[in-house]
Write a protein that binds this DNA or RNA. Structure first.
Lengths: 250, 250
DNA sequence: TGCACAGCCTGACGTCGCGTCAGGGTCAAG
DNA sequence: CTTGACCCTGACGCGACGTCAGGCTGTGCA
């Protein structure tokens, strides 16, 4: 097949296929003597994978490395796509629910607080975040381990893990509110609990790695926002506690 | 509130807020004497709307004109967002189903055809398309009329309308396959039926407007792709028939 | 057999929505 | 009164294409 036909079939423009060719993401397996691009069925397979990952928000470069990874069989791609799509489903349903909540609020003449309204935009660890995370840490063993373990988790597991996490966060916030110093025994114990949670649920989190995470809580605005919305100053607090705990044990 | 706080609350970067200010999409209602941006609760409301529309794929310019439209009250925005989000839900579920179908096919050792695989990418009239359509035709009376009417349609209505549309398309394809000329009586009658369908279901479609649509079926690759996937040459065929019909009556 | 016209090619520049410095002022805490 | 977090305004960069421009190819039909 030549580019026009492929474009019509896949619902993309010819220019897009040119682009994918130039950046090496999808080069047709052949050319006619006149230089026309010739796409094989195998090329179509690959294009399909590309489009799915693209729709899920992955940057093209990342898509290329995913598809070129020799240790990743087709089934793994399908499983990953399935997981990401379900994340998106959940997030979209949540947004629908939020809009419906607004409508009800409006009908009853009341109005929501900014915090309620932005809930969906701050917190989330959704598809876009996953794409990002995989890009940032795609090479690390921790990430790989996390991927292997979490793949087996059921919805119930996730609920439990989320609850565990929120529990520790709430206790951090309470300590902060009570004026307990971030480098006190009590705060460090909470940090230790946090570290063990990560080790149990995601990957083997050493003190060193945990200290790195602590730093990131301040550097990455996304994490900072997450903690700050629970309580002002919490990002700094958790970060300090985590690093103090690492210094004490390490 | 100053920019950092707003950014943390809304889950965007400070740079994003700077950008929205510069392009006039969201300018804070005040500044301190030192030039610091000061956001009011009203500004937060607007930011929230911006983020929802942005997530739905609208270009920022279009978001601005939607939000600045004085004839659009908040309830209308909520209804539109609700509709678009449900479209997205449907599309995502369809993609989940498609991935599951692939998995099953793989388990049973069979493989799908390219057509089956790309089904979801070619056809669709989803959120992105809606954003586009509204951008292109946002000013026309036809679009406004269509929006007013379709707002009241139930899911059953949509199923019926889609079936009607596919019926005419199938008969066009049959005529094409049978070698019936595109400017024959028979083809023109089909075109007329097509025009009346649009008038009944969407907006008052004059012969002139219909002829314009016909031209677009060839110019807009998206429409071309839609018809070409039903049968090669069908875009040209329908286009010609529609314009011949318009010439005969107009 | 020639030609019109759709379809393909390769540059190359434009666009959108920000990211990312650079260079410099502001403000609260210690 | 300094330090460090936070704010400002340019200005350039980038990803993923869109959009010409200028030119070759392939085919239906007169």
């Amino acid at each position: 097949m030549n580019v026009g036909e492929v474009a019509a079939l896949a619902g993309v423009t010819v220019r897009t296929l040119h682009h994918y060719d130039r950046i090496g993401l999808l080069s047709p397996s052949g050319r006619t003597s006149a230089g026309y691009r010739q796409y094989s069925p195998g090329d179509l397979d690959r294009l399909h994978q590309v489009l799915v990952y693209r729709e899920l928000g992955f940057p093209l470069e990342q898509v290329a490395s995913l598809l070129d990874d020799p240790s990743a069989d087709p089934v793994e791609h399908l499983r990953r796509q399935h997981r990401l799509l379900q994340d998106r489903l959940e997030r979209t349903s949540a947004m629908v629910a939020a809009v419906e909540k607004e409508m009800e609020a409006h009908d009853m003449g009341i109005s929501l607080t900014p915090e309620e309204r932005f809930e969906l935009f701050g917190d989330w660890l959704p598809e876009e975040y996953e794409a990002e995370a995989e890009q940032k840490w795609g090479e690390t063993e921790a990430w790989a381990q996390s991927q292997r373990r979490t793949r087996a988790y059921s919805k119930d597991d996730w609920v439990r893990i989320k609850a565990e996490g929120e529990d520790v966060e709430a206790r951090f916030a309470a300590a902060l509110a009570a004026g307990v110093p971030a480098d006190s025994e009590q705060a460090m114990d909470l940090a230790e609990e946090h570290r063990q949670q990560i080790s149990r649920n995601f990957y083997d989190c050493t003190y060193e790695v945990h200290a790195g995470l602590g730093r990131m809580y301040l550097e990455d605005e996304r994490f900072t926002a997450h903690y700050e919305r629970i309580a002002p100053g919490l990002a700094q607090y958790v970060s300090t506690a985590v690093q103090a705990n690492a210094a004490r044990r390490g």
